[in-house]
Structures are given as structure tokens and as C-alpha cells.
Amino acid sequence: MANSALDFSAFSPSALSAEETQLIEASVAQFGAPLLLLDCDVVRQQYRALAAALPNVTLHFALKPLPHEAVVRTLLAEGASFDLATSGEVDLVASQGVPADKTIHTHPIKRDSDIRDALAYGCTVFVVDNLNELEKFIPYKDEVELLVRLSFRNAEAFADLSKKFGCSPELAITIITKAKQLGIRIKGLSFHVGSQTSSPQKYVDAILACKIVMEQVVALGLPALSTLDIGGGFPVSYAKQVTPIDEFCAPINTALASLPETVQVLAEPGRFIVAPAVMSVVSVMGQAEREGKIWYYLDDGIYGSFSGLMFDEANYPIVTVNQDTLCYPSVLAGPTCDSIDVVAEHIMLPKLTNGDLIVARMMGAYTSATATDFNFFKRAQTVILNEVCIAEQKLG
């Protein structure tokens, strides 16, 4: 891990600017390649944009897409809360001084040790989506508050997270009723409409369905629910533009306004906060001509920072430091000895030489987090930019 005071937060998403090229070349000269350039100022901008778009929602950053200490510190300074799913994530936020009352634990399926680790830290809000999971909390019923996660399928999402987790409204009522019998407090409901959701209507439909469940709970004489967690999934632009976040959230806010004023609303943004905050910088290790295309072999690939191409279906915008306008059919391959390690098979690139640099944008989510050391190629080093806010630097 390294630090730099250089900034790329204002760069365009297309060709590299002179300042951007200077940053990239200076970073490679100092640290070598491959690199991941993590700009904390972009993290701030994304958090503030979503907070403004959802003004009455408490944002719990989901650590999963980029569990990095600098991200945690930056968001904690912004007043963010955090969404945890594992004991390792508990350890991370604890090590960075995050107060436990600013966290929730949202993995629907937990080992007893996971529950105990979170409680030892001080996190007391957990998620369940079945009766088996509910019963795990009997020994801790005086310490915990639970959210019941509902399932709302979404075939349009990058990852339909309701395929694996969540229950029907009918089962939610059963769980809440059983919890009352067991003396376990149900705090509210939660859902996740899926990663990189393209339509806000998915949230609207889920919010209104949860409202009906909340009304049914009251009608049955069960304790009223005080919390709704609307999950994450807010979209960002990769190869194509998505709806601006303020427009995207407008119908969500309208739906939330229909809930009782006593209901506290939470969200679990992950990708939206960190995806635009990281650029990948790789270098050409070698090249060969195969079937009319030039193959460029890079020092990072599918088993490393570009793991999202396999697990996440993201389409990262790729540019070259060499900005010649004459381009040729090319292939970008990763460094390992596995034939599936190909970053891009159909891409037009200028003629490159060994050592030339290639940049991929939007590399903050599900990249370094899912990278491996396969074939003993080391993972890309992360260079932290602007951990101290630029505005604070200017004031100083």
C-alpha cells in the first residue's frame, strides 16, 4: 500500500488528459506496475452524491466490493455507517475506530461464531430470512435486534441477490410471529433488489410490498416495525451511461414518503461509492500476432484486478497512454498460463510496444476484492490518493 498526493478526480471518462498521464507515469515510475490508483476524493464525492439523492436515508457502506482501510477511514470522516457480513469485516471496521453503533450485520446465514464476534465488537443488529436462522439468536435474545429480509427477484440486475437470500412476505410474517413467541425483537425488514439495478421501479415495488407487511404486522397485534433497509444496487456507468443518481432516487424517495414517519430507512451502497474511485494501470509484458490480431500480454488479468470480468460482468472502460489515432484489432490477455485469462478479445488499439501502459477505469468494485495470487503473479499494489480531503488541503 502506498500514498500519493496526485489527483485524478476531475478527469473525463474518455481519453487520458495530460494531468492524468502525468499521474499514471509518475506512479509507475515510483511503484512499478500493475497498480490500482484509489482516489479517496472520488469516494467522498460518490458518498455525498448518494446522501443528497436519499436525504432521509442512513447510508451503511457495504464493505464487500472494496474492503480497504482508506475507504473506511474516508467514509467514517464523512459520517457514514457500515454494513458488515463477516467477522473479517468486523475486524476491519474495529481496527479503524468505527463505533459499533454505526454498523449492522446483514449476512442472512451466520455461524454462531459470527454472531458472537459481532456482539463482542458491539454490533447488535442482524438479518435473518428463515426460521432456522432465527433460532440461532435464542441464546442472544436480550442483546439483539433483527431485520427480516424479503426476496424480490430481479433478472435485470448484474447479480440477482434475491435468488440466494430473502423470504416471501408470508414467511416473513411467520418469522416475526415466531420471534415474538421466542422473545426475540424484530426491528424491521430489509431487501436487496440486486447489484447494478437499472430501474428504480424495483425499489419502489419492494418498498410498497414491505409497507404492506408492516401493516399486516400491526393488524396481527405484533410489535410495530421501526426500520426498513432498502439494500444497495444503485447503478454506476461502465461502458454505457446510467440514469443520474438524483433522478434515479426520485421515485424511491416518493415511495419512502408513504411509510409511517416513525420508520427509519437504511441503505447498503457498495459499488456506487467505490467503483469510480479506482483506476487500474497495467503494462505490456509481451506481444504476438495470432489470427490477424495482435495479442498484448499484460501484467494483470482475470485472476487479478480484472476478476470482475469473470464474477461481476462489468465492462471496464479501457484506454492506452499511447493515444495514436491509428488502431488495429487487438486482444488483451492476462499474465497467467491459463487460456481463459483474457481481458478483452475484440478491442481496437494503437500499436503498442513492450512496457507501454494501459488504463482501465471504474475498477473500484469487485476487482481487488476478488483478485487472487494464481500462478504466483502478485496482486496489483494499491496507491492511495487524496486521503486528506483536497478542500482541507486548500484550507491548510
Rank of each mutant, 00 (worst) to 15 (best):
169 P>R: 06
265 V>Q: 07
277 A>G: 11
167 C>D: 02
276 P>S: 08
212 I>T: 15
188 G>T: 06
238 Y>N: 10
288 A>Y: 11
198 S>K: 07
160 D>W: 01
256 L>I: 06
269 P>N: 13
249 C>Q: 06
280 S>R: 03
242 V>M: 12
220 L>N: 12
235 P>V: 13
239 A>V: 14
232 G>E: 03
193 V>P: 01
225 L>Y: 07
164 K>E: 12
208 L>G: 00
223 P>M: 08
283 S>M: 09
193 V>Q: 02
178 K>N: 11
259 L>D: 04
179 A>Q: 10
229 D>Q: 03
245 I>F: 09
179 A>L: 05
211 K>E: 07
274 V>G: 02
231 G>Q: 06
194 G>W: 07
258 S>D: 07
243 T>L: 11
290 R>D: 12
162 S>I: 01
256 L>E: 04
211 K>W: 01
212 I>P: 00
261 E>Y: 00
265 V>A: 10
234 F>D: 02
278 V>I: 11
210 C>Y: 02
209 A>L: 01
202 K>T: 05
261 E>H: 07
165 F>W: 13
175 I>G: 04
233 G>W: 15
252 I>A: 10
170 E>N: 08
283 S>D: 04
196 Q>N: 08
265 V>W: 04
288 A>S: 13
181 Q>G: 03
205 D>A: 14
211 K>Q: 13
180 K>G: 02
280 S>F: 05
225 L>F: 06
268 E>R: 15
259 L>S: 06
228 L>E: 01
226 S>L: 13
226 S>M: 08
